[in-house]
Amino acid sequence: MKNWWKGLAVVLLLYTAAAGFLMPVPRLAILNETIRNLYFHVPMWFGMTFILIASVYYSIRYLRTPTPQLDILSHEAAKTGILMGCVGLATGSIWAKYTWGTWWTNDPKLNGAAIAMLIYGAYLVLRSSFTDEQQRARISAIYNIFAFATAMPLFYILPRLTDSLHPGAGGNPAFAKYDLDDNMRLVFYPAVIGWTLLAFWLAQVASRIAALKLKVYEKQLA
């Protein structure tokens, strides 16, 4: 049963989808039913953070012992993180449309997230501008670590210093205090775990495909 966590991911996400739409939620002004988006929007960022941490971990390991496998792992993990971030931006944008009345506002938290996505977009551009595989792997590992160190303050430090509409900024509590009751916790925590596991699953499948492609390519060369 070494794949128990994939089963767990499926169960938790099915539970999230079912309970997220059916369980009672507190009636709050403005938010109304959109509060259910909490089970989808917020876990995206959790999943993204964890998968990017994994990507940095593989990058550091790559710099210590360079193997193609570690490079593939860190690259695919970063790509999954970017995917999660984009879905997070999209769900957040929809949520903003129904609560703040606009798809996008000039808000530190939103801008921070968008810029962090740009930083990781630059990572993909960087990877595509090398022809030599070893050099590409080493330099993108270096940039990946550097990008993580500068992108994380954008998510977790800078928005807290300024006033913002978004919860979890300007000294607001993120979500725990006022908009989350015990019923919601029952769905929210499983949702976070489920989406995070799904991110790792995606990264694993993607890196297996990339590793197979590499193998096929090497066979063709030989």
């Binding site: 921070g112 810029i115 962090a116 740009l118 930083i119 977009g121 630059a122 551009v125 960087l126 501008s129 940039y143 550097f146 990008a147 500068t150 303050p153 954008l154 800078l158």
Partner: peptide, 13 residues
Amino acid sequence: TLMVVLGFPLMIP
């Protein structure tokens, strides 16, 4: 090009 693409987002914060 790469210098600008890599540098600008990192400098924005």
